[in-house]
């Protein structure tokens, strides 16, 4: 049990634990905050595994932007702030399928990798990641930029108040 293993175990436990709380919490805002903890633990895991750029991009984008967006949406949709009982649908299909998927995948991976020891990777630098990205993955990079642009435009168009469905008073369910 090296230091790396201990770190991996600890950070993994935090990630899984807070992830569990995200999906079971009865308060929306707390779920969002637990998501922050989970994503942060993930960033730590990336650091241990030697993907430093990924870790910091995770913190910047996921924790910094995505979660903030989600919390904004929570506020804009007037989600109940305190605990609310009707946040959940029936548990048993989710339990069966989710449990099956999780346990199944875990079993698969354990069966594949057992307790093999791998060498710790050389810590990755931005230089090497940049070389990888702009060396082999230029085209996907450019396509992704176009994707981001279209997502931006789409989000703006979708949020305009003067398009879409008519006012609520004229709509019968």
């Amino acid at each position: 049990m090296t230091v790396a293993d201990a770190l991996l175990l600890a950070l993994g436990a935090i990630a899984v634990g807070s992830g569990a709380l995200v999906v079971t919490s009865t308060q929306i805002v707390r779920a969002g905050l637990y998501l922050v903890v989970s994503l942060g633990a993930m960033a730590g895991l990336y650091l241990v595994l030697g993907a430093e750029l990924v870790a910091w991009v995770q913190v910047l984008v996921y924790v910094g932007a995505v979660v903030v967006l989600l919390l904004f949406a929570v506020m804009l949709t007037r989600a109940p702030i305190g605990p609310s009982p009707d946040l959940d649908r029936p548990a048993w299909p989710a339990l069966i399928v989710g449990g099956g998927v999780g346990v199944g995948l875990a079993a698969l991976l354990v069966d594949a990798f057992r307790w093999t020891i791998y060498a710790m990777p050389v810590p990755g630098t931005t230089d090497r990641m940049g070389a990888e990205l702009f060396g082999s993955w230029v085209l996907p990079f450019e396509v992704l930029s176009i994707l981001l642009l279209s997502a931006l435009v789409g989000a703006i168009v979708l949020s305009r108040p003067d398009i879409g469905a008519p006012k609520k008073t004229e709509v019968e369910v």
Binding site: G100, V101, G104
Partner: peptide, 16 residues
Amino acid sequence: AVAVFSGALLLGVVAA
């Protein structure tokens, strides 16, 4: 959503 995910689970189990 339940249908899609359970289908995927089933396929995975069969493949395994």
